[in-house]
C-alpha cells in the first residue's frame, strides 16, 4: 500500500511561523518531507533559503536535530554523522541532507559525488528552485535556458541565461547508486511514494524535488503548485525514478506547448519566439533522451 495524503500525520515537524515568502515551494517540500520521515530524523543544511527561513538562531522551525553545514559539504557531513550514529548503535535514524539546487549542482557537487561513489547510507534531497534564491536570485547550474536572474540580466545583446539546465539526476544515475528520483511538490502521491521509498531504503538515495519559487520566478504566489504541474505537463521537468539499475518514467507528459509553462512567469517574459523554439526543441530532446534511457534499462 502506498502512502496517501490522508495517512500523513497531523503534527508538523517543520512548524508554522517560519519566514518563507508567501507561496514558497521549498516550505511545502520541507513540511511534507518531515511528515513522512518522522521524528527519528536528523537534518543537515548547507546555505540555502530553507536554512534561513527555517532556522534563524535561536528560532528554529524543525523539531528534529538540525545542523547548518558549509555550502560545499552537506553530503559528506551527513555521511559522517550517519557513520557516527551507526557506531553508537542508532542505526535506524534517517540522516537527511536538504540542499538547494545551487548547493547541489554547483557548490556541493564534489562532496555529493564523493558520498555517492562511496554509497554512504544517507538521503540527499535537492529542492530545485532553479537559482540561488537565498542571496537574491542569481543563476545556478540548475537555472533553465532563457531565464532572467540578477546575474543573467536581460539586455540588448544577452537576454537571460544562455546555457541549458544541468541535469543533476542523470549525473547521479551515472554513479549507479541504489536510488535516484525526480519528484515535484505538485504531484502529491508520486512525491509521497518516493519519500517513503527513500526513507525505507539503505545506501545512497538522491531525490530532486521541483519546488517553484514565486519570488524568484516573478510568479503570483498562489500559482506555485499550478506552475509545478505545467512544468511536468510541458516536459520541462520529468518525473522518473532509477532503482537498482532500472529507470521508470512515473508520469508521461502531455507535451503541452512549453509556452504555456513560460507565460505566467516574469522571469521568461522577455523571451523571443526564436528562444522559445530553442527551448521547445530542447524539451523534446530531453524527453526523448529520458524515454530512451528508461527503455534501455528494462
Amino acid at each position: 500500500m502506498s502512502l496517501k495524503i490522508k495517512d500523513l500525520p497531523e503534527e508538523n515537524l517543520f512548524t508554522k511561523g517560519h519566514t518563507a515568502c508567501p507561496g514558497c515551494g521549498g516550505a511545502i517540500m520541507a513540511k511534507i518531507a518531515m511528515k513522512v520521515f518522522g521524528k527519528n530524523t536528523c537534518a543537515y543544511f548547507p546555505a540555502n533559503c530553507l536554512l534561513v527561513f527555517g532556522g534563524t538562531y535561536p528560532l528554529n522551525a524543525f523539531k528534529v536535530p538540525y545542523l547548518h553545514v558549509l555550502f560545499e559539504n552537506s553530503a559528506v557531513c551527513a555521511a559522517g554523522i550517519k557513520r557516527a550514529l551507526n557506531k553508537l548503535g542508532k542505526e535506524d535514524v534517517n540522516v537527511v541532507a536538504f540542499a538547494g539546487d545551487g548547493g547541489t549542482a554547483d557548490i556541493g557537487i564534489q562532496a555529493l559525488s564523493g558520498a555517492a561513489e562511496r554509497n554512504e547510507d544517507i538521503i540527499y534531497i535537492c529542492y530545485d528552485n532553479e537559482a540561488y534564491m537565498n542571496t537574491g536570485i542569481q543563476r545556478s547550474g540548475s537555472t533553465p535556458f532563457g531565464a532572467w536572474t540578477t546575474t543573467t540580466p536581460v539586455g540588448s545583446k544577452i537576454a537571460g541565461k544562455e546555457r541549458f539546465k544541468k541535469d543533476v539526476p542523470r549525473i547521479m544515475i551515472a554513479h549507479d547508486v541504489p536510488y535516484v528520483a525526480t519528484a515535484s511538490i505538485s504531484y502529491p502521491l508520486d512525491l509521497l511514494k518516493k519519500l517513503e521509498k527513500v526513507k525505507n531504503m539503505k545506501g545512497f538515495r538522491y531525490l530532486q524535488i521541483f519546488a517553484p519559487c514565486p519570488t524568484g520566478w516573478r510568479l503570483d504566489p498562489s500559482k506555485t503548485v499550478e506552475i509545478g504541474k505545467l512544468a511536468v505537463e510541458s516536459g520541462m521537468w520529468t518525473l522518473y525514478e532509477f532503482e537498482n539499475g532500472k529507470m521508470t518514467i512515473n508520469k508521461k507528459p502531455k507535451m503541452i506547448p512549453v509556452r504555456e509553462y513560460l507565460k505566467p512567469q516574469g522571469r521568461f517574459r522577455h523571451l523571443t519566439d526564436e528562444q522559445i523554439d530553442i527551448l521547445q526543441e530542447l524539451v523534446k530532446k530531453k524527453w526523448e533522451r529520458d524515454l530512451a534511457m528508461a527503455e534501455s534499462t528494462h
Binding site: 512548524t15 511561523g17 535561536p58
Partner: peptide, 27 residues
Amino acid sequence: LATRAMKTDAGLVGPGSFVENKTGSWR
C-alpha cells in the same frame, strides 16, 4: 549544541520554536 528546545524570557527557542513568530500580519 547551539540551542536545545528551551524557554527564555521572550519565549521558546531551539527546535520547533518558530511558532513564536506569528506571520499572520503579512497577509
